[in-house]
Design a protein around this nucleic acid. Sequence first.
DNA 1: ATCAAAAATGTAATCGATTACATCATAAGC
DNA 2: GCTTATGATGTAATCGATTACATTTTTGAT
Lengths: 329, 329
Amino acid sequence: MANIQQVAQKAGVSVATVSRVLNNHATVTPKTRLKVEQAINELNYEPSMLGRNLRNSESRLLLVLIPSISNPFYTEIIDGIEDTAIKNNYNILLCDTDSNPQRENIYFNLVKNKLADGIISMDPAVDMQKLIDLAEHHPIIQCSEYDENSCIPYVTIDNELAAYHAVKHLIKLGHEKIALINSDEKFLYARQRRQGYERALSEFNLPINKEWIYNTTQLEFEFGQQAMKKLLQSDEKPSAVFAVSDTLAIGALKEINSHGLLVPDDISVVGFDKISFSSMTNPTLTTVSQPMYRMGCTAASMLIDSIQGNKVESIVLNHELVIRESTMG
Amino acid sequence: MANIQQVAQKAGVSVATVSRVLNNHATVTPKTRLKVEQAINELNYEPSMLGRNLRNSESRLLLVLIPSISNPFYTEIIDGIEDTAIKNNYNILLCDTDSNPQRENIYFNLVKNKLADGIISMDPAVDMQKLIDLAEHHPIIQCSEYDENSCIPYVTIDNELAAYHAVKHLIKLGHEKIALINSDEKFLYARQRRQGYERALSEFNLPINKEWIYNTTQLEFEFGQQAMKKLLQSDEKPSAVFAVSDTLAIGALKEINSHGLLVPDDISVVGFDKISFSSMTNPTLTTVSQPMYRMGCTAASMLIDSIQGNKVESIVLNHELVIRESTMG
DNA sequence: ATCAAAAATGTAATCGATTACATCATAAGC
DNA sequence: GCTTATGATGTAATCGATTACATTTTTGAT
């Protein structure tokens, strides 16, 4: 691969002139520009990002931290991030942390080392202290998942309110025995959704039954199945279930089916996220939809703003309850 | 962020010595090493990859090209790639091309610019000519998807044989009217799977009915639904369906259900890939399982080998037919 | 104590770009 | 034709690391 010196030599000009052509600086004669462009083509030259970044300290690369690419929830958000980034002449790289601190470190280092200009973190299991430390010197945005005390700007929805809406929907349908399949409450969103759940119940004077609240350690289907299995063993079976993710809800659905019960006739189910598979289940799943694409766009805009030295404010977007077969009795 | 000069100054040594400490060169007195390490800690110094790569021309970063992170098929492969890479002291970056040539270019440039050492391509829609050109000067491996004429090493399964096994399974169950939901046959795997389908039919003297072969433009659920809808309208309805991806098969399942038909009683269904959803459907889906994790490991090993200057050979791995409810009449 | 060999450390070139500043060429004004 | 203003191009420092080679220090044998 040719370098700028060789191009300069071939074109019979200095490296400065080649650089000027490369960066579209005004003061280059058309004739010279042509010579340089010819040399570039002949040598098949492409400028090295390494040299450029070293000098400019910018890479125009954004890092997106996700806990696992297997969770379909992130897909649409990433589309939004990607589109916005490209519109602003930035590119993104996906970093699957697998919630593994070692891998996390690798990606943090890319930023420290100026190989990337900033980070959008969507990993709820991220090492918060490290993220906060990093945020002191580097642009970082939290997307969907966040730490309220961290001072790192975030974009998210009102999880408490969304859960409240979902549960209220079930109550309005006449349900009084509503179970909650929650994930690990070390995550803020899990605590918030539980609060929404409890607020709805309280508001309608329904008791909060510990037996109907189940916390899973992960979000995969099997954990939803396991949760539902346990709930079906309780003294008084719930007549409805609110799960904090579609994957859990789908696992629950499967478990209900395999017990010979019908959704929504015997038990109604509400999920969260509106992943694409949620309309493929039988019955289709009622779920809380987040404006994922917009959330991604917003996060990217915020990050780019922040990179360009502007102060950015956290943003809370609206959610929407999508009513489908699993609650249509 | 401190640089190596500042560390050297603080420790009262030269930059060369700092660099030696950083790179564990033998010839440093324990006393000096200590001084340097102290300075490094006090200044919170981390070496810049930019400077290092510029000098060394290696980044120890691998690029993984995927058409879309929304396809769950890639998840496990990526796990394999990631584990193997990390074991060899490499890191990976996921590149979602969205089958968009512009984005592809960005990632190709990262390699050309030495910001990454090599590429594992899993995008069937990749611009082959560009990939081949790139492969002349840079290590590249094709994973799962490949071009047989490209000379770029690949790891894959025998798609023809896998499809043959799937269809033979249906034939053995007594089916004689077997439909094929294929994707776009501009993809090699689609052509190969069709061949396997046809070989199985021919071997048992079953006619190949054009009406029972449907090509979709994409792999999302809806395209499977659409395909099945069309198949159900044919003069003679098929009694079994082989879809070249689980997502298509799940769409087909949904469509069959919504026509009031039962799987497998009325129509049997076989998918391909064994994505996690495939065990959450009702009924669960019979599918062809690829050794995805191993495929990922293999691809990563091949790439790293290639980076280190060794010649690598293409590899074909074994598949397995997983029989579940959708074909258990 | 002296000197050679070995070990430790320093000096400075290098990677590939960008850019402030210097220099050279051209055109305009008189 | 001479001076000056302006535009085009070149020179060389710079970014942050690595490393061949040079230099200094230490060690050990006599």
